[in-house]
Structure formats: structure tokens, C-alpha cells
Design a protein around this nucleic acid. Structure first.
Length: 199
DNA sequence: TTCTTGATCGGT
DNA sequence: CCGATCAAGAAT
């Protein structure tokens, strides 16, 4: 037992890679209520997934894989359950779970779990920073430390609100497709553009 | 090699 | 509304 060994609570068990092997919309719904856990230098940081978006594959013009197989998108064509992390706007990392065939699910918001020191997790860029994720975790399998998804409490369909994906206005018709999912009971869902402070 | 573009966020 | 800031892809 050294500083690089940590003990996770026994109820925190990584889901198998096969959990993520399903159609992206199905996974986007199934991931709501699951926990994202990062173990780094003996510290555990985690949060419960409350908002996701499905990126369907090469035919989906909002999906990076629609630009073809490149060094960056190659991981999305690999086996399900691996991390797809990329840098946007030069300063924010976005974290996705690969489902295969060029598709992935973007994690957009978490309800804070442990080890976050009060940092906000409502937003794709904020949550990667709060969990201290780095680009080095790109392509990492999500069924084991240092980065994994654990079974939490599934969100029943009646509590899932569906809406268009955020920030993909360049994608034409695909921008308005209902591929964003969030737990309507959660206070930690990201703020949508156009949604003013109140209401 | 240089140019362009963002699956965002925090500050006006 | 506006601009920060940089990896990856495309153009040169």
C-alpha cells in the first residue's frame, strides 16, 4: 500500500465495457444517474451524470466523425466504453464515452460527488476541469482506474427531458435533432444558450 | 509551414 | 455581446 494505491468504497464498482455497447441514444439515456470517477495521485474525484448528448456517427453532421477517420476521431471507431477527449476553443476539454462505429456520448454535466473542492460541474468544460481530466486520458478504457464509470441510480424515462444539442448550430438540420438528455430533477444541468437567468 | 476552426466559459 | 487560447485538420 503506497500513495499510488487507493481504496474505493466497495459500492463503487466500474461498469464493464459491454455496458456501453449499445446505440448512442440508448447509452445517452442509460448513463444518466451513473457516476464518473477519476482517481489521480491517490485522490478520488467523482460526480453523478445528469446531462448527456448523443453523437450518432459519420452521418451525423454535428459529430466529429462526420469529417471522416482522422487521428482525432479514430477512437470513436474503436471498441465501446473508451474515452474520447478533445480540446475545444483552445481551453476546455470535452469528455465522451465511445459507443463504436464512429459514435459517442458527450457528458455535459454532473451532480458533484467527492473530492471536487466546490468546483462547478455543470458544463462539459467545467466538469473535465473539476475532475482534473487531461488529454492523456484520451482513449482510456472506462472500466478501471484511473477513469471509470460506476453504477449509480438509473434515471427513469419520465424524469428525462429531451432537447436539441448545444453549440452545434453549424450542423444544419442535425442541430435541431432531439439528442440532448437531462434529469429534470437535477439542479446541476448546464445552462442552455438563449435561456435567461430566470424562468 | 501557415491558416482556420471550434460539442465553452467568464466577464461586460 | 465578446474574446481568450491551442490542438487538429486543411490549405499552401
Amino acid at each position: 500500500m503506497n500513495v499510488y494505491t487507493i481504496t474505493l468504497r466497495p459500492d463503487v464498482t466500474p461498469l464493464p465495457l459491454t455496458f456501453h455497447a449499445r446505440a448512442p441514444v440508448k447509452l445517452a439515456r442509460a448513463l444518466l444517474g451513473m457516476d464518473l470517477v477519476h482517481v489521480s495521485r491517490g485522490r478520488v474525484r467523482s460526480g453523478r451524470i445528469v446531462e448527456t448528448e448523443a453523437y450518432l456517427g459519420p452521418h451525423d453532421l454535428a459529430c466529429h466523425s462526420s469529417k471522416g477517420r482522422t487521428a482525432r476521431t479514430e477512437v470513436m471507431f474503436g471498441p465501446p466504453g473508451h474515452a474520447y477527449l478533445f480540446l475545444v476553443y483552445g481551453m476546455h476539454l470535452c469528455f465522451n464515452v465511445v459507443t463504436g462505429d464512429g459514435a459517442a456520448v458527450l457528458i455535459r454535466a454532473l451532480a458533484p460527488g467527492e473530492g471536487l473542492g466546490g468546483l462547478r460541474t455543470d458544463g462539459p468544460g467545467r466538469l473535465t476541469r473539476a475532475l482534473a481530466l487531461g488529454l492523456a486520458l484520451n482513449e482510456a478504457p472506462l472500466d478501471r482506474p484511473p477513469l471509470f464509470i460506476a453504477r449509480g441510480v438509473p434515471v427513469p424515462a419520465r424524469h428525462v427531458e429531451v432537447s436539441p444539442r448545444i453549440g452545434v448550430d453549424y450542423a444544419g438540420e442535425w442541430a435541431s435533432r432531439p439528442l440532448r438528455f437531462h434529469d429534470r430533477r437535477s439542479a446541476f444541468v448546464s445552462r442552455s444558450p438563449g435561456r435567461h437567468s430566470g424562468r
